[in-house]
Design a protein around this nucleic acid. Structure first.
Lengths: 366, 366
DNA sequence: GTTAGCACTCGTCGGTGTCGAGTGCTAACG
DNA sequence: CGTTAGCACTCGACACCGACGAGTGCTAAC
């Protein structure tokens, strides 16, 4: 699509103004507000052309013009200026890096919070989808007579723990003591560290049972819980933040619309559906792929009916054996410039934290 | 306050109807809808009396009547029937108990979810406020050359873990190995298990330093992190669920009101302020104390301006060395009967989970 | 090609009238 | 004396109307 310079400027004025005010904008207003050096009548003619091209539209005859989806698409692809982060934003992100180092578990939640806080749009962040979690280290810790604590470190340095309740009908009175547990931990590590849950064969279990000797009754509950924990680890979680921000947008003034979105953003399944739909569109709009992999999906480009009136800005991030997703939702007239710059800032931020945590390349050679 | 039987029934009809419909109700409607066997004119006379007593009011002359705060108070104190849980509700709670056994950490979040799900009111649940967390067990787990994992079990069986990054300028190359860490863990346990962070004296640290010998450089980072973790443990967290439900109430139709509540329910500080205000009111309305310690705070009885138009139903729950709080928020015309029965069901539920986790009396004698 | 002018459209806003639900008061009834 | 029917009155909700203004398209003149 090719636009002459004047049409370009007028379209830009319309989109910017609408992003800011959410009101249809007329020719006279453009002439007054933006000094383009042409009269409102000329602008009217140009606007008429832009409407013919499908870039703008009007809600009814004789209201001002509003960008169409195609108009937003054009704006995003061709006239959006990339903006550097403001000092405040950059400082905020810096602080976040510092706070998060050493807290891999919270980083993802914090990222969602930061995103919505900086942009005032609802944010969604999913944990990385890992191909196959492997066990890095196991430790049994004594608790009391009837139970012990199982601590599990996975190859992503995620740490899980759970209480193991021992069967009460065991011969030996009570749980094994500290020294015994240390010995049992060593046996467990020798046999299953570095393996995924599928790799634990009957053969290995038998060997361990033999070595556990009089403590054999401890092994099965422990293995069962390890399996559960690894399964839970393979379950990707999603976090949202700033959902209430949608109340501030006039396009969601009707409570029913706001409620529909609220509902979707509280439900795990629909969150995944939202994040997932990017894939189909990715090929279609190559222009965005260039922007550090940040995708912008506008209005009806969304495959979910629920989002037909919204825009979605999303990107993937990578931890060496999996990728997660991070996204912002807003009305179609969202401030793409700001949202994209913040999102790309956060992506860099996450990368730094991930590197600081040493998750990058050292995991395989444990 | 004494009401004759007819006034009693009329007031009950007004409150019930208003809870259900959120519309002012007139004498004719009462006569038709509730078969009290008296005419609308008689009802008008009685309503006039009820208004003089301050139990009901009207928004403007010639609109129907609406319960006043005093009216709700009377309703809650004298005419609310206690209702048994429905089969569905009971089953839902049963399931929750099963799911939560062994997951002390999630129980509180799950409780908030269950509350809001069963009542359709926003729920707030705070973690127990513990007087002084003590260390029950410490375990050091090897991770890699530069770091190790510290696992801490406290007297509430909460388990925390954090990665300890060792100073890189240490003489000995890399972190201690598995056997060494096991030995160091034993030293730590011998000296500080059963103590709170304040009890760890300079003297104890010196002794441990001596025993750590060539691994002394590991001790200080570890102790620093233990202090942080205990401090974080003493920080009570609060969870909310179902905030979006307020959108369904006509009294929050104006977005600005809904937004104010949203804001308060997303902010930790104001959540505590909400939960805290019960104390002052507790003495005032003894009548409620009888209902298993469930308090009902209506409208202006709230000390927070924000809640002057709301009601709050709250209760405390106890784990042996601390108490937490659990609450529901709704419009003044909330369905007190249902809310109270669900809340009391959940309280019993929590008690069962707590007992199943063995947190009750066995903790002290570790 | 640009602009001024004009007729036309349509949503918004204030004013007006009607309708219905509600009330209080009074008088009649058992 | 308590209860009820009837009546006048109040007031919000709603529909209707006209004025106003922001906006458009079209045409003619510059």
């Amino acid at each position: 699509m090719l636009l002459n310079d004047r049409k370009f400027k007028i379209l830009q004025a319309i989109v910017n103004d609408y992003i800011e005010t959410a009101e249809p904008i007329g020719s006279r207003t453009i002439a007054k507000k933006y000094s383009l050096g042409i009269s409102s009548a000329t602008i009217r003619n140009e606007m008429s052309d832009l409407e013919d091209m499908g870039l703008i539209g009007q809600l009814h005859t004789s209201s001002g013009r509003v960008p169409s989806e195609k108009g937003y698409r054009f704006y995003v692809d061709s006239m959006m200026k990339s903006r550097a982060l403001s000092v405040d934003e950059a400082l905020f992100l810096q602080r976040m890096i510092i706070d998060n180092i050493g807290h891999a578990e919270y980083m993802i939640q914090e990222t969602a919070k930061a995103l919505s806080r900086l942009t005032n749009y609802p944010a969604i962040v999913s944990e990385p989808f890992l191909k196959k979690t492997t066990i890095k280290h196991i430790q049994l810790v004594p608790l009391d007579e009837k139970s012990l604590l199982l601590v599990l470190v996975t190859d992503t340095k995620t740490v899980k723990n759970q209480i193991v309740n021992l069967p009460s009908d065991t011969r030996s009175s009570g749980a094994p003591g500290y020294e015994t547990l240390t010995r049992l931990s060593a046996i467990l590590n020798r046999h299953i560290a570095g393996k995924s849950i599928r790799d634990i064969s009957r053969d290995i279990i038998d060997k361990m049972l033999a070595q556990f000797a009089e403590n054999a009754h401890v092994l099965m509950p422990v293995l069962g819980i390890i399996a559960d924990m690894i399964k839970a680890e393979d379950d990707v979680r999603v976090y949202t933040s700033g959902i209430k921000n949608i109340l501030a947008f006039p396009e969601f003034a009707e409570k029913s619309k706001a409620e529909a979105i609220f509902h979707a953003l509280e439900d795990r399944e629909s969150l995944f559906a939202i994040l997932d739909q990017g894939r189909a569109n990715f090929a279609r709009h190559q222009a965005n792929a260039s922007r550090e992999g940040i995708q912008i999906i506008i209005g009806a480009e969304n495959t979910l009916d629920l989002l037909k009136a919204c825009s979605l800005i999303k990107a993937n991030y990578t931890i060496d054996n999996g990728t997660g997703c991070i996204a912002l939702i807003g009305p179609m007239r969202m401030d793409y410039t700001q949202a994209v710059s913040v999102l790309s800032g956060i992506l860099q931020n996450m990368q730094q934290v991930i590197e600081a945590l040493g998750l990058r390349n050292e995991v395989q050679n444990q």
